[in-house]
């Protein structure tokens, strides 16, 4: 990787802000412009910036292929788990109103949608980063 002080410094400054913005977009899925898909992709964009600036090996030292795959599975499990939770509460699959009726907590519907959005965000971010690792890394195994 070429040493370039400007790119490395600017990306070191920008990456935390991009990641905080991505979390903001995911969390604001229910109340404003945002959502899991968009926030997940913005989060993956911060990983692309890190790979461009510091090289694939440096980024992989922070989270490797296995960790990314686990994150992706965890995201889908959060989503499907909420669906099965609704089945458990005598509703249909992904019927949030059934969970709300059994647990009796007000505004639970919006909270469950936020959880689902978080699951989507984690899964999309992990899948994107996995694809980027595989395409940028010449297929080598690092973990």
């Amino acid at each position: 990787m070429m040493e370039n002080v400007v790119i490395r410094t600017v990306s070191r400054l920008a990456v935390p802000f991009i990641q905080i913005f991505a979390l903001y977009v995911i969390v604001h899925g229910a109340s404003g412009a945002g959502g899991g898909f968009q926030g997940g992709v913005v989060f993956a964009a911060s990983f692309i910036l890190m790979i461009i600036a510091f090289g694939t090996a440096n980024v992989r030292r922070r989270i490797d292929n296995r960790g990314i795959m686990w994150l992706s599975v965890i995201g889908i499990t959060i989503y499907a788990g909420i669906g099965f939770l609704a089945l458990l509460m005598a509703g249909n699959f992904l019927e949030y109103a059934a969970i709300e009726a059994v647990l009796g907590i007000p505004h639970l519907h919006g909270i469950l949608i936020d959880l689902v959005e978080a699951g989507i965000g984690i899964a999309v971010m992990a899948a994107m980063v996995s694809i980027i690792y595989d395409i940028s890394g010449n297929g080598e195994e690092s973990s």
């Binding site: 109340s31 959502g35 949608i113 689902v116």
Partner: peptide, 17 residues
């Protein structure tokens, strides 16, 4: 559903599957 973002409501609730 009672949340503000209509797109998210359709995405996660009506079309959740």
């Amino acid at each position: 559903i009672g949340i503000d973002n209509i797109v998210t409501a359709i995405l996660a609730s009506y079309r959740g599957f």
